[in-house]
Design a protein around this nucleic acid. Structure first.
Lengths: 345, 345
DNA sequence: TCGATCATCCAAAGCGCTTTGGGGTGAGTC
DNA sequence: GACTCACCCCAAAGCGCTTTGGATGATCGA
């Protein structure tokens, strides 16, 4: 069933049917109702490709996922972000287009999305320090929202981010308050903007007390469970092991816990752990008293906010860059406790 | 830069330029080279919407993600599957379209994808018992591949699945060989096809030895970490606790481990655990001796295979349904050991 | 009563591409 | 020298929709 069929069936022109369907005022109410009823009855759906071609709007938002040897965006955190964004898209009638692209082809991929006309806007994931994408996308005039921030961008741009610095400052303060001084920072890849900010918050808390963190206790890697485990295992075996860990995600935090237990210590008593908790659907850190003390900020909510912002931008172009900073809660769980004198040296 | 511009620039007709670009034979080699060079130089990319409209092919594959109150497909396993499929799509020039749809609107959503013409084919996720989608999609004539199987479908259909029954049969056999009899099955939702098969394998192994598993030890839920933990915690507190757990995914397995350790037991000595391991990028169960003894089958590989199969189907229609059954490896890790007489009763 | 205004509707021109159905041109054939 | 026959190339007709620029009456004010 196409527009032509429907219009012939109704003895109306395609113009009128189209207008009736799309809510234009130039059509009598009675006619509109007739058209709507007929469309419903015959299950008419406009062909999106044709409509897109005519309107110039794709009704789709793109997410391009860079894949490098070291870093793979397709992680559980990303999945939850997508879930949040996807809800918003479908509610507002947009599709979600995902392209998985090798890192080196990225600029190419973005340009193609523009000229191929398959999307109306983009979400930029995992911004790095010196990320060229902000410049690239403003240059080619593609609406976009960054999940996170590209600190050193010169152009203004829209973003949704969590207050990483503040969250990690608070978490570090808590550990320091509990008496810990040898605190390990198990961070994400430090070419990522969020990791840099988290480290900044960490160092800020130390500096505010006239202390400096031990660089040997700061690590930076892709945030897998194995990374958390191996790092903790290594650090705990040193002559001067940390008495607390501040971990960048719940996945490595699980690894850290595993390592702690392997060496016969108890998390929350012998070793304290605070993690950032993205509130992932499948890895909830909840309960009366959550397992982990954590800075919590739902990445799913961030996905929703970013999607809404982007659609607003797409639908009212030139409405200037927007920004949204989400604060994280600091949730007390079972994984933190005061420094044990017997364990400290 | 559009086709018209390019053709005027080259003093050729749009026809010839289009043919040269798309590798049709009716154009002289020299001309083709000229066209290709000019296209490259001016960064010409055909507008996909226009091309789609003309060819009737969307060059996109859809994944519709049902969202219910209980079950959310956007889980880490799904993310890895997407990663695998996405690689294949981009290699073969397809886009990946994701729609997140409330369960009750699903039929609607599938029909729309067809008439809106936004995709050339679909991957069907999480098939349930009595899943109506196989019928629906064959009826509306949309190519599709099921990830898993819809056991009770009447029409033939294409699928990629892991041999769930066999894998769980083998895992159960191992536990039985080690002397365990009180084995808990921490399964996924049992309206899902895969969960039914896994349970079948589990029961089969018991039956082959003239035994029957204790129904009280079989649970079925969405496969989260919390589910694994709570289930294990509950079961371990009963008068006749299990001495081994067979778990359907690494996420609940992590929860089971947490519960075991909370009650002061040691996994692999006091309580054995085997999990199914989808070989998730961010939750690797690797190492010289992996933490978990596991049935391992990469869901990412499954995503690749499903995508390849679907594209083949799309590109050569009527080439009949295809099937692929992937076998899982049984990997020995640290989480299994012989039944301790002191623990058994 | 007559032009002006409004409310409805329509024909046709795109949107940017592919593809059908020829149409020249020069080499090869008898 | 006339006739095929490849070989290249082109004009134009779609693909299914939106949108421009009227056309047609009906209504209205003076």
């Amino acid at each position: 069933m196409k527009l032509k069929d429907l219009s012939e069936l109704l003895h109306l022109s395609q113009t009128t049917v189209s207008r009736a369907l799309n809510g234009y005022p130039e059509v009598a109410e009675a006619t509109r109702r007739r058209v709507l009823a007929a469309a419903e009855a015959h299950g008419y759906r406009p062909n999106m490709r044709a409509r897109s071609l005519a309107t110039g709007r794709a009704m789709a938002i793109g997410h391009v996922i860079p894949v490098t040897a070291r870093h793979e965006m397709v992680n559980p955190i990303f999945a939850d972000f997508l879930a949040g964004a996807g809800e918003v898209y479908s509610r507002r009638g947009y599709d979600m287009l995902i392209s998985i692209v090798p890192d080196e082809d990225q600029e190419q991929a973005y340009r193609e999305l523009r000229t191929k006309g398959s999307v109306d806007g983009l979400i930029v994931h995992a911004p790095k320090l010196g990320d060229p994408r902000v410049h690239l996308l403003t240059e080619i005039g593609m609406p976009f929202v960054v999940h996170g921030r590209a600190s050193d961008a010169v152009e203004p741009y829209s973003w949704v981010d969590m207050n990483n610095t503040h969250a990690f400052r608070r978490a570090t303060d808590l550990l320091l308050d509990l008496g810990h001084r040898r605190i390990a920072l198990v961070n994400g890849l430090e070419n990522m903007d969020f990791a840099i900010r988290r480290r900044a918050g960490f160092e800020e808390a130390f500096a505010a007390r006239g202390l400096t963190p031990d660089p040997a206790l700061m690590t930076s890697e892709e945030m897998t469970e194995v990374y958390g485990h191996d790092t903790a295992r290594t650090l705990l075996a040193t002559a001067a092991p940390p008495t607390a860990f501040l971990v960048s995600s719940i996945l490595p935090a699980i690894g850290v816990r595993r390592a702690i237990e392997e060496v016969g210590l108890r998390m929350g008593r012998d070793v304290s752990v605070i993690t950032h908790d993205d509130d992932l659907s499948y890895l909830k850190n909840r309960g009366d008293v959550p397992v982990f003390t954590a800075t919590r900020s739902s990445v799913r909510a961030a996905g929703q906010r970013a999607a809404e912002m982007l659609l607003d931008l797409v639908e009212s172009p030139g409405s200037g860059p927007r920004e949204q900073l989400l604060e994280a809660d600091l949730i007390l769980g079972q994984s933190t406790g005061p420094l044990l004198q017997s364990v400290s040296r």
